[in-house]
Design a protein around this nucleic acid. Structure first.
Lengths: 109, 109
DNA sequence: TAATTGTATCGCAATATTACGATTGATTAT
DNA sequence: ATAATCAATCGTAATATTGCGATACAATTA
């Protein structure tokens, strides 16, 4: 017990949950905003930008990468991170579908 | 250690993370979709609808309520849940801001 | 080759989450 | 009042997350 019962949900619900969980942390939100703001790839500046240890940042980057939301390419000594456009837009679409499926006509509470 | 360092982030980043975490679980996504689909308040049908124990559903509902995304009103013996329109639309707006702040012009990776 | 630099991984401790049975609390019906 | 019904809470077990120091790895530079 204590483990999410993924098998009782649709794959859409599961994947949406996984991607949402990836961005549901202030550090990872901050990282994504930095990547967007830079409008370019960012290498190791994230460690100095946020107030977290290098190991912690690396772990957050790994989770964002696992969720497919960012990508990293080797750029000499360092590694270049940026948004993965396809997954980003896809998540945006999924969220938009979910949120706009609610019509405010049922004010029954 | 092991606790999120909320103090190093902006309040916007923190509240967005809290609300995202609330919907970042397949059971809670399913609950929200049920509430929306019913286009009306739903009482205890959620337990039979999803395959989870009553205590578990109640706990998920509590988390959604804590995040302000749903509201429950007493309806006789049972309790009526529905989307909280204001918080729902606000989160939609926040997410739209985040997602559309990314312009796909920086294909440098 | 050796030193340097930037990043990933390991191992650990603290805390949070998930799920559920059992119980409690509140409201309606008998 | 008593029983029935529905939901919240408690307690507990299993697992996941968060953060970081220490270390390992990879690529460049001296």
């Amino acid at each position: 017990m204590g483990v999410t019962k993924s098998e009782i949900y649709t794959s859409e619900q599961n994947t949406l949950a996984v991607q949402l969980k990836a961005i549901a942390h202030p550090a990872r939100i901050a990282i994504l905003q930095e990547l967007i703001k830079a409008n370019a790839c960012i290498c190791g500046d994230l460690v100095t930008e946020l107030g977290l240890a290098q190991a912690t940042i690396s772990q957050h980057l790994k989770e964002l990468k696992n969720a497919g939301l960012i990508q990293g390419t080797i750029e000499g000594v360092s590694i270049c991170y940026c948004i993965e456009p396809r997954a980003w837009k896809n998540l945006q679409k999924e969220l938009n579908t979910l949120f706009s499926s609610f019509k405010d006509t049922n004010s029954c509470c």
